[in-house]
Simulated scan of single mutants.
Amino acid sequence: MRVARITNGKVAAGASALEDERVAKRRQALELAETQGVAGACRIAGISRACFYKWKARYEPTRPSESLKSRPPVHRHPRQLKSPSVVEKVLKASRSHPDWGCVEIAKAVNSGVKDEQERVSSPTVQKILLRHGLGSRYERRLKFEDELWGRKHPRHSSLDGKLVTTLMKNNPCFRHWKERPARPGTLLTLDTFTAGILEDVGRIFVHALVDTFSCYAFAKIHESAQAQERGLLQEALLYFTDVSLGVLEVRTLKNSKYSHTVDIADVLRSHDIVHTTGTRINGFAERFRRTARVEFFRKAIKESSHQRIEILQSDFAWWLERYNKSRSQHGFPNHGHPPLEIIKNHLAARKL
């Protein structure tokens, strides 16, 4: 007997033509099984027995073509989304207790709940928090600060002492929450810190000038800690002059090996700017250090394309522009707003 074979034929253009060809092959395989047996049909068609029996189970004589068409994939474990009430309970617990981990939040949400649909596991809590940008304790503490200021200006005595200490460690700017300047430019803090080591250059340093009202920053990369800071200060003075805000005070770190106030003394005097020193790094400067190191230098230093300081400086300038203009800064003092937006809001309020 002459054996009919399934031909591979040229695939027709278009999804509809391709699907029609697949259906014809499947029907032909089922017809071959009547004369050649299942084993013979599978061998001729080049398919497995499991595939043959899957098509056979789907086949309906009354609608042969429709029953053999490909079906969309079905997830074996469809995602079980928790009800909005459960999600709100998780978020409320995380906002009320920013130091709690996922296990502690799950225990609080499940307390007294008997319905399994209303209970959550710690991995589910983590997924919910990640979806809402609260996956780490750091993010939850900053969110707690934002909501704290949204309700009312807090009193130091109304906050738990341990919580205050935790917030200060989490956000160094929080150390100055009782002494925030009245406007942008009132107090700038000057800082120098190491950014990393380039293979062909060696250790590199960042000179930064940060406004303590808005966290707006001016910064440059230098090969030496002894670099002149005059240009950085003049850039800041020009910026605040352009927006009709003068600089009143510049603070540096006392007895720091990177403190070079002699370089900028004449600039400060010529603009009648007060110079003060502190024994501890300013919280705004410390937070800018952390942010720059974590978000830019930690990755950039490792890339081979950044082994030239000119390229690194160019990319750092791009990152700094984004930091000032569009990067949301949660926690005190910006509470989710970029530094430039804080300055613009102050200028708009002053015109009213």
Rank of each mutant, 00 (worst) to 15 (best):
A41T: 04
A41R: 09
C42K: 10
R43C: 01
R43T: 05
I44K: 06
G46I: 09
I47G: 07
S48N: 08
R49M: 05
K54C: 08
K54Y: 14
K56R: 15
R58Y: 15
E60V: 11
E60L: 04
T62N: 09
T62H: 13
R63Y: 09
R63E: 14
P64R: 07
P64Y: 08
S67F: 12
S67C: 12
L68H: 06
L68F: 15
L68E: 14
K69A: 13
K69V: 12
K69H: 13
R71D: 15
P72S: 07
V74Y: 09
H75R: 13
R76I: 05
R76C: 04
P78K: 07
P78C: 06
Q80Y: 02
Q80T: 01
Q80W: 02
L81P: 00
L81W: 11
K82I: 03
P84C: 07
P84I: 01
S85P: 00
S85D: 14
V87C: 09
E88G: 06
K89L: 12
K92P: 07
A93D: 10
S94I: 09
R95S: 14
S96C: 11
H97E: 11
H97P: 02
H97Q: 11
P98R: 11
D99N: 10
D99L: 10
W100G: 04
G101E: 09
G101Q: 08
C102K: 10
E104Q: 15
A108Q: 14
N110F: 03
S111I: 02
G112A: 08
K114G: 05
K114P: 03
E116F: 00
E118F: 01
E118Y: 00
E118R: 03
R119C: 13
V120W: 05
S122K: 11
S122N: 12
P123D: 13
P123Q: 08
T124M: 11
T124N: 06
V125I: 13
Q126N: 05
K127Q: 13
K127L: 09
L130V: 01
H132A: 03
G133W: 02
G133A: 03
G133K: 10
L134I: 06
S136A: 10
R137L: 06
R137I: 05
R137A: 14
R137K: 14
Y138I: 00
R140D: 13
R140V: 13
R141M: 15
K143C: 12
K143H: 14
F144P: 01
E145Y: 01
D146A: 04
E147Q: 12
E147K: 06
L148S: 08
W149A: 13
W149S: 09
G150S: 15
R151Y: 12
H153G: 01
H153I: 07
P154S: 01
R155W: 12
R155S: 13
S158F: 00
L159K: 01
L159E: 02
D160N: 13
G161C: 00
G161F: 00
K162C: 05
K162W: 03
L163I: 10
V164G: 00
V164R: 02
T165A: 10
T165F: 01
T166Q: 13
L167S: 11
M168V: 11
K169P: 00
K169W: 03
N171K: 01
C173Y: 01
F174A: 09
F174W: 03
W177L: 10
W177A: 04
K178Q: 10
E179L: 04
E179H: 10
R180E: 02
R180F: 03
R180V: 01
